[in-house]
């Protein structure tokens, strides 16, 4: 029912262990037979320390449940406790202690897809920041969430902090989407560099999806091919040099 592929590539100049994007897809196995799928991506802020850990904790904690405001509060709270506990294990030099006091920051895009019958079901997404969801229906962009206009990327996105006091103004900037899906719909979750590229292309060309699909069928076969596609976009200055993550979910008919 759900055919899922996903990759994450660090920015040029950084190693894989320095990639501060995180992603989780559940269930991890037997996706075809599942009646639900939950996934999340998070983009840790480079300027802050331990943001790779923070992004990872946010996606792990959130995908335990379906997105909701209540569960978001729980997920952030649990991630904050784990972040603090993990960092307490280090004997930090003074510069790192000072930096940790400022907290780590990251975006969160959290999606749950539920199958009601063989024709489709419902999905719910929650977003904080500029990681973006694209829903494709009948080969066209159906929904771009939470950012609908590519000019809005880079405009000081809201980020979730590992320090509770720094999340005071977060509530009013949470975006929630509830919608129905139908077999054949496709979902893309992307962090900001690729999300900006995709949205701009969709804006320029209504039939962009068919050419994108052709590329993805070839380039999302394995990590190396995805990496070389991303690299070529970076070299052509079409894609910002930033950590880049994509989850691609196809909803496919059940074969009897």
């Amino acid at each position: 029912m759900f055919d899922v592929k996903s990759y994450s590539i660090p920015k040029n100049g950084n190693s894989t262990s320095e990639n501060e994007d995180a992603k989780v897809i559940l269930p991890r196995k037997h996706v075809d037979g599942s009646s639900f799928l939950r996934c999340a991506v998070s983009d840790g802020a480079t300027q802050t320390s331990f943001s790779r850990l923070w992004a990872k904790l946010l996606v792990n904690e959130s995908t335990q449940f379906k997105p909701s405001l209540k569960r978001l509060g729980d997920a952030i709270h649990n991630a904050q406790l784990s972040w603090t506990n993990e960092i307490a294990k280090y004997d930090l030099p003074w510069h790192a202690e000072e930096k940790v006091k400022k907290g780590a920051f990251a975006t969160l895009l959290w999606l749950s897809i539920n199958k009601l019958d063989d024709t489709g079901g419902t999905y719910k997404a929650l977003a904080l920041g500029d990681s973006n969801l694209f829903v494709i229906r009948k080969e066209s962009l159906h929904i771009s969430f939470p950012i609908q206009d590519s000019q809005r990327f880079g405009n000081d996105p809201i980020l979730i902090s590992s320090i509770p006091a720094r999340n005071e103004n977060m509530a009013e900037r949470i975006n929630i989407l509830d919608d129905a899906w139908f077999v054949g719909d496709e979902f893309f979750l992307a962090t900001d560099a690729l999300a900006y590229y995709l949205l701009k292309k969709f804006e320029q060309n209504e039939s962009f999806f068919s050419s994108l699909k052709e590329i993805l069928i070839k380039q999302m076969v394995h990590y190396d091919s995805f990496q070389s596609w991303i690299q070529s976009l970076r070299e052509n200055n079409e894609l910002k040099n930033d950590d880049t993550t994509l989850i691609w979910i196809k909803t496919v008919p059940v074969l009897n």
């Binding site: 320390s49 280090y90 930090l92 030099p93 510069h95 790192a96 000072e98 930096k99």
Partner: peptide, 14 residues
């Protein structure tokens, strides 16, 4: 200089 060190601080390294 202290501030510049903190801005260049990433996890445990500078």
């Amino acid at each position: 200089i202290q501030t510049l060190i903190v801005t260049a601080s990433k996890d445990v390294e500078v």
